[in-house]
């Protein structure tokens, strides 16, 4: 496993797109984690001035809700696009440079080739989860009133849900890359599916079927956090992880990866 991961990481060593996207992604996430509270405070201050009723202040950085708040924002489709784009390029490059062919000639099995890409996705998802954990921990320690270990740990499994979201989205991207080995088309298809096609499709199907769409299920794993503001409007979101949606997302992740594996094993290179 580490041999395959090492091969994948060597492939990315001086790939400027990989490092550029990684830097952009981490900067954007850091900006989000550290900047969102001051941003909301500003907005609320503005809103309060014109509001007949007082608007309660919101703190996003309280343990344990911080894990829910941060993983919800980091798991949004915009931020998932960064790792997905890198994965698509790393897969389609192998076809356009015909290096997948040379890898197989050199003695990598087709299954190993696929596994290398899967391990890289897992690695990226783990790295982003760790980044969330470190930033969340620091922000919580600084701002949270309650820093007991019970408070810190009670919702920390939201990070695992975030990990699943990243991995599921990367798996979808990887499958599209294997299906359509032209980078520009693969990126287009991912974008159209994620931003246009699935949202439209889920709009027209019945409530009970929506949850079976991969991205709809994925985004539902971590629901919108229940802030005091939301309570003001009388909206109730799930402040827990929906295990049924976790199972559906896991199922889709397995399906995406099996399709990728099947393509790698069947196609002439």
């Amino acid at each position: 496993m580490f041999r395959l991961l090492r091969i994948e990481l060597t492939k990315s060593t001086s790939y400027y797109v990989f490092w550029g996207m990684a830097a952009l992604n981490l900067m954007a996430l850091a900006g989000l984690y550290w900047g969102i509270q001051p941003f909301i405070d500003d907005k609320l201050a503005d809103a309060s001035r014109n509001s007949p009723i007082p608007i309660p202040a919101i703190s996003l950085y309280n343990f344990p809700e911080i894990w829910h708040n941060l993983s919800f924002m980091a798991g949004s489709r915009f931020f998932l696009m960064f790792p997905a784009l890198v994965i698509i390029l790393l897969v389609t490059n192998e076809y356009s440079f015909r290096t997948i062919r040379q890898n197989v000639i050199d003695g990598l099995s087709r299954t190993e080739f696929f596994l290398g890409k899967l391990y890289l996705s897992v690695f990226i998802a783990l790295f982003l989860s760790l980044f969330l954990l470190i930033n969340g921990f620091l922000l919580g320690i600084i701002h949270s009133a309650d820093v007991s270990s019970v408070a810190i740990l009670s919702k920390i499994h939201f990070i695992a849900a975030y990990f699943l979201e990243v991995l599921a989205f990367c798996s979808l991207a990887m499958m599209i890359g294997f299906l359509v080995p032209k980078s520009i088309f693969a990126l287009g298809i991912l974008f159209v599916y994620a931003v246009i096609a699935e949202p439209i499709a889920t709009h027209f199907v019945g409530e009970s079927y929506k949850q079976f769409f991969p991205l709809y299920a994925m985004s539902g794993v971590i629901d919108v956090p229940n802030s005091s503001l939301m309570k003001l409007f009388g909206v109730q979101f799930k402040d827990y992880i929906d295990w049924a949606l976790v199972l559906i997302t896991l199922g889709w992740t397995v399906v995406f990866n099996l399709i990728s594996l099947w393509i790698v094993r069947k196609k002439n290179l």
């Binding site: 060597t10 492939k11 060593t13 001086s14 790939y15 400027y16 490059n93 440079f97 015909r98 290096t99």
Partner: peptide
């Protein structure tokens, strides 16, 4: 053709 990663 020689097949390698051009950026490496």
């Amino acid at each position: 053709m020689p097949n390698f990663y051009p950026y490496l």
